[in-house]
Structures are given as structure tokens and as C-alpha cells.
Design a protein around this nucleic acid. Sequence first.
DNA 1: GCCTAAGTTCAATTTTTAATGAAAATTCTG
DNA 2: CAGAATTTTCATTAAAAATTGAACTTAGGC
Lengths: 174, 174
Amino acid sequence: MKTPSEKSNGKPVNRKLYAPLAAHEVELAQFFVRMANILGIQRSVAEIYSLLYASPKPMEFDQIQGRLEMSKGSVSQGLKFLRDHGMILAIKEKGTKRERWEPTPSLAGSLVNILRSQVLPSLEKSKPTLQNVLDFATARAAAPEVIERIARLQRWNSRAVELSALLLPPPADE
Amino acid sequence: MKTPSEKSNGKPVNRKLYAPLAAHEVELAQFFVRMANILGIQRSVAEIYSLLYASPKPMEFDQIQGRLEMSKGSVSQGLKFLRDHGMILAIKEKGTKRERWEPTPSLAGSLVNILRSQVLPSLEKSKPTLQNVLDFATARAAAPEVIERIARLQRWNSRAVELSALLLPPPADE
DNA sequence: GCCTAAGTTCAATTTTTAATGAAAATTCTG
DNA sequence: CAGAATTTTCATTAAAAATTGAACTTAGGC
């Protein structure tokens, strides 16, 4: 007969196998969640990153899932996001199957990656939109002050795109 | 007998009284909604601002509600947000009861106000949190590299707060 | 000072976004 | 290359956020 700590396949359930978060881990997560909110990044991603950030050694999938009591799906998606944005690195030891994860050394670099992917696309997408608006408004003979306002917006947006591209240059390789 | 365009109090319903949005107004709203997303501001607020921005003259409550086909509650809350962040100004003409609204001349100033209220508080709230984390971690004799990471985070945060306070100074009066 | 028009508030509802977990896909390992 | 272990995918569910509208409040006109 199976104990409650076993699934039908005999594999032990994660619950209770991993230590609950320590006080400093909880507070650090609060910090990262706040920062993530500003950037429009979801809580689960911030929690994963925070855990890795406070860990003295790289962590593997099941540890992350167990200590955060989070679903497999969320861990998988969270790690994917962090990987895609260059925020974590895989440490692959020979002889082991599972990968282990740690934060990339440069948090600054990670931030730049995030900003580039979260903010720049919106700015760039706006260029043609604003040109359209200006064309429309001109064609309909809108009030001159309105046309001037829109033109100002367009100049702003262009400068913002240029500035961002300068501050957030794409990585040389990849 | 009442027509369908009248309510029981005899006051005409707004529907059909106001022109639907023109193409350039729709596209401009898309632009402002995108920018609002970056800043974590809701769609309805962006739409109201956009409408005022594209209007050659100040607009009153009912016009805004009618042209955007938006509820009274949303218009009221949206105008409150825009007012509170110095993004719109009330034009009060003598002899009229209703106020009319227009965007403040300086969009740059408005942006600064938004950033100050949306971003700064998170940065500032983090200062004590990070100090706590550091204290906790030290007390538990966490790994030195973890302590170093957290200390670095704390220095970053402090500098971010200082820099923000510098770039986004509070208005002199009010 | 009453009455009505104008605007605000907030509980209920709708919409949007994030998390879950079972099934599918992939990847080592023997 | 079979088979198990690990991870990913994605339809479903749950949670969070935004919107609505009716009741309430406030401000002006008479």
C-alpha cells in the first residue's frame, strides 16, 4: 500500500522535502517582486530569480519547484523567461543529467536586456502609428494646434527610440 | 410615451449624440495605450488623455463619456487620476457650471509626475526591506557571496533612489 | 434653504492576466 | 534504441485588475 507521500508511480511528492523559505529569502522576494511590477514582469518569475539570487550554489529544477511550492509549468516558463533575457546561466556538470541554474553575474546587463525587450518594441511600434495619425489629421484638416501637438509627439518618440537604442545596444553576438 | 432615446427622467441618453472616434483619434489612442502599458496605467485613462490631446478645445465630462462610450464611473476616476498627476487642467468659464478639461501644456512635466508617483515609491519602500534582508542573512551566517550580492543590491537601490529624486524633483508648491 | 444637475463612490461584474497540471515532447542512459 | 527521467506545452482554472452603474454626495441656481 502506498503512503500519502508517494504518487501512483512510486515517486515521492515534493511537498515537505524542501525547506520553507527563510525570512531573508521572503523579504528579498518582496523586493524583486516590487521591481518586477515596475517592469511588468510576473511575480513567479521574480520569485524564481530571487531564490537563485539568494542561493550560494546553483539550483536545479526540482529544488526551485519544491522550495517555492510552485507548479512545474510555472517553473518551466519562469526559467525560460529568465534564460531568454540572459538573467540566468545553466551550470552543466558532467555526469549529471539535470541542469542547475544561477543568476548571471551582471545584474546591470540583465536589466538592460529586460528594458530592451519590454520597452523598446513599444516605442518602435509607435513610429508608424504616429506618422499615420499625423497624415490622417492633416488630410482631415484638423486644427493647427492639434497637428502641432501630434508632430511634437512624433519628434519625441523618434528621439526616445534613438536614445534607447543607444543606451540599450543589442548584444554583439547570439 | 417615451422613445428609446429617453430615460424615465426624460433626459436623453448619450448614445448617438456624440460622433464616433475618427481614424486618427483611434490610432492616437493606440499610441497612448501602449505608453500607458509601459507605465502600468490603465487603458481607460490613456483613452481619455488621448481624446483631450487630440481635441482643439477643452472637453466636458459628458462629451468625453459620450465619444468614448465609457461609463460615468470610469470617466470620473480617469479624470481624477489625470488631475492628480497634473496631466490635465480645468478650464472654468464664468456662467457655466460644468468644468472643461484640456491636457497640460508640458507633456514632459506630466511624465515626470507619473514616474515620480509610480516608480519612486517602490524604490523607496525597498530601502528598509533590503536592510532587513542583509541583517537576516548576516545573522544566519549566510554564505559570504550571498551577503555580498545582497549588499550590492542595497547600494544599487540607494543610488537609484538618489538619482530618481534628482531627476524627478517634487514640485516646489502645491 | 430647497431642488436639480453634476460628479463621486464603491460593491458587483466583466475582462484580462497568471498559474496549474496532465499530456506530449525531448533527452539522457544503459 | 528502448525506456525512464526530465522538461515543455497549452487548455483549463484561479487570481487580479479594470470597468460598470446605481446609490449617494456635493455644489449651484433660483
